[in-house]
Design a protein around this nucleic acid. Structure first.
Length: 157
DNA sequence: GCCAACGTTGGC
DNA sequence: GCCAACGTTGGC
């Protein structure tokens, strides 16, 4: 059963992993490891191959939506949680019963210009957007089709 | 670097 | 089950 692609937004600090890092990666792909938030994990579990993702740079200058990626592999156990040497090691997770999942994404395109947070604020059609909610820290979040359309239109300017 | 907002942990 | 303490996120 296929369904219409859903839209998402994923945050990354460019100092850790930027859209240029994704562009340089083999086959423009990466696994999205290190998510340690249940809500974000649950959204990743809902992702299906072909779903579209806004790539967002957080703690950046400027913080901005910088491009589009797509889901190429659905949720599977995040093995970095099993590795005591990994920054995101979580002893509560183990291979028999993994707590944390990741997905694989592939770069679709980098925008010609970053769509900064500043620009997104104040656009009426985006007033409900999770990213713009005060105090929102969710690193993986759904995006409404209407929001997706507005942002892609901004990217084309 | 500051700090508000948030999620998680753990004592009770 | 409550909630204070703590660690983290992320804009500024």
């Amino acid at each position: 059963m296929s369904r219409k692609p859903c839209y998402w937004l994923m945050k990354s600090e460019p100092s850790a992993f930027s859209i240029d890092d994704l562009a340089r990666a083999p086959r423009h792909m990466t696994c999205w490891d290190g998510v340690r938030n249940y809500q974000a994990r649950n959204f990743m579990r809902e992702m299906r191959v072909g779903d579209q993702v806004l790539f967002y740079h957080s703690s950046a200058e400027p913080s901005a939506v910088v491009g589009v990626a797509e889901v190429v592999k659905e949720a599977y156990p995040d093995s970095t949680a099993f590795d005591p040497k990994d920054k995101h090691y979580d002893p509560s997770s183990n291979p028999a019963q993994p707590t944390w999942d990741m997905v694989d994404i592939r770069l679709v395109r980098k925008f010609h210009r970053p769509i900064a947070l500043d620009e997104l604020r104040g656009i009426p059609g985006l007033s409900q957007m999770e990213l713009l909610r005060k105090g929102s820290r969710l690193s993986v979040q759904p995006v409404r089709p209407s929001e997706w359309a507005i942002i892609l239109k901004l990217a084309a300017k």
